[in-house]
Design a protein around this nucleic acid. Structure first.
Lengths: 338, 338
DNA sequence: TTGTATGCGTTATCAC
DNA sequence: GTGATAACGCATACAA
């Protein structure tokens, strides 16, 4: 194990003091030109890099940020990660990823360990399903009490005051449904998640508002609420067998694509018989046959925005407050299914 | 900013020395029972957690590992990340993710910074395309020279000696093609990447060997090499327009699904007219219509294996050597397209 | 212009 | 049993 070279090593080798080396490497003009040259040359030669740990201990900042996502195998969160990583690296920060797997416990334990251990400087989190169900946000509040910046993204809660990045879920949904209505669709179904999932509930609201604004009566039988993701496929198939409609929106990509398959199996033509729209920025809808229209959430933009907000907090010495909520605008991607 | 509580704080509060507190918290029986109780109670009350940075500085181990992936918006790497994260956390390690974006430069710079800065204890890496093209692996060799463990995964190189986790690409491809042949397919096309991508070239080998072993003459015109991922869609469509075959394998999920769509647009029935098979563990093939058969690479297993190998190296004090290559077996998932 | 001393929070060694 | 001290690698206030 080739030990890493330290200031001390350079100092000894060049027969100067450690602090001289330290200053020389910072090009401080406290140090004579010759010494500076000499030290810098030597450091370059031996490829000296300051030990991050020591620097961190010194100023108690790790230059690491944590990103908590509920589930990685989900195009949306993947793009969020990509966005976060990009902005973080650009600003000299590293990203620690924690996949909560929708588990409250993992979210809480990991968060506490990251926070109290001084492992990261701040957090970006998209809440786990379980957390949203329990409505227990003490771990987040605790983070803030410790003075650590926190940015919530996508799956958020109003119970915690912090910076937030969301998408205009309600509006996106509203626009999509309006689009379907304007195309002449009358009976529009919705496949959604249970209400405790913040985004699902907002999308349902947008759906309802669009219907109301266009004087279409709400028919609760056209709304399918998936409570168990495991057998969502079966639930959707059953729903489609038993319900008739001429358009359907899924609050994510899988719901939309599963619905389409079920409809096709029933001999329905897409989009002639039934129009379909989903939520996603991923490949699933883009490569479906026919391609499926989507409300694009711009996960990468959200990730970038969140990272930037967090870093701004970290770099500013103001005592925080005046928390902001950034709303990323969804865009409707029209494809063959509508 | 509520300062975090330290040993010193506890010591002062309880009027004992810092080292007493330190030992008491470790339940050392050097310390009297009463003092231990008292200290531990106090620590629990104030939720004391040792400062990781200080501990790291002490023993020069961060308990962080870096995962380098070329591209995150790719189901395979996503599942790898999931696997790595799971095993890492189980063993008390955190995962720093770096997305190289297929860029040699980003790979090298990030790697050096992680290594020389003492930010992580070890690396798991899947090489960027550019790195494989340049065949410049000095950064990896440098890592090893510094005595830091390195595990290469999936996109690897023989030029660097280290622990490796791969999938039996050649065999997976061989099995898939043989399967097609046994079904009576005669003209089997292959959509692949350029040879410098290690896995692409292996999959092509498996393809060729399967043909040879079944006495089918190789027709180079049935092989499409995608050199620019950007316009792969167009290249595939053109290929399909100009070439006739009764089966096709794509070396990833996108190639397979794009091929299917192009074929369907031509009025071909899947699988009656043309059988299709892809490489992937993601949703894209699973939710296609018809569902597409796949060589499952088990990204999560690979990730888990890689993380375990790395951690084993880190926790063992042996002077390394005897590097291992773990081969994860692919499995053929038969779906509707074959 | 350079060097000394101190501290960041721990752990470990050694003395009391 | 308990505590003082040094050390990890660096930065910085303060001497010289």
């Amino acid at each position: 194990m080739k030990r890493k070279i330290t200031l001390k090593d350079i100092a000894k080798e060049l027969d100067v003091s450690i602090s001289t080396v330290s200053k020389a490497l910072k090009n401080s003009n406290e140090i004579g030109f010759d010494t500076r040259e000499k030290v810098q040359a030597f450091a370059k030669l031996y490829n000296y890099k300051p030990n991050n740990i020591a620097v961190s201990l010194q100023n108690s900042r790790t230059k690491h940020i944590a990103l908590f996502i509920p589930e990685i195998v989900h195009d949306f969160f993947t793009t969020v990660l990509k966005g976060v990583e990009e902005v973080a690296h650009k600003n000299g920060y590293n990203v620690l990823v924690c996949v909560s797997n929708e588990s409250f416990e993992k979210e809480v334990l990991s968060m506490e360990m990251f926070a109290r251990g001084g492992i990261v400087d701040g957090f970006i989190i998209s809440l786990s399903k379980e957390t949203q169900l329990k409505e227990d946000y003490n771990h987040l509040i605790e983070i803030e009490n410790q003075g650590m910046p926190l940015v919530m993204i996508d799956r958020i809660t109003d119970k915690v005051i912090s910076d937030k990045v969301i998408v205009d879920d309600m509006r996106g949904s509203y626009t999509a449904i309006s689009h379907l209505i304007n195309q002449g669709r009358k009976r529009i179904a919705l496949i959604t998640t249970e209400d405790y999932i913040s985004v699902g509930s907002l999308r349902k609201k947008g759906y309802k508002k669009a219907l109301a604004d266009h004087d279409i009566e709400l028919d609760e039988r056209l709304i399918l609420t998936i409570n168990n993701i495991e057998d969502s496929d079966k639930a959707i198939e059953k729903f489609i067998r038993e319900t008739t409609f001429d358009a359907v929106m899924g609050v994510n990509d899988v719901f939309a694509v599963v619905a389409m398959k079920a409809l096709q199996n029933q001999g329905k033509k897409i989009p002639e018989d039934v129009a379909i729209i989903g939520f996603s920025d991923g490949k699933l809808l883009k490569y479906a046959a026919p391609t499926i229209s989507a409300v694009n959430q711009h996960g990468d933009e959200m990730g970038k925005a969140a990272a930037q907000m967090l870093i701004d907090r970290l770099e500013s010495d103001k005592e925080a407050e005046n928390y902001k909520t950034t709303v990323i605008t969804t865009t409707l991607i029209e494809r063959e299914s509508t």
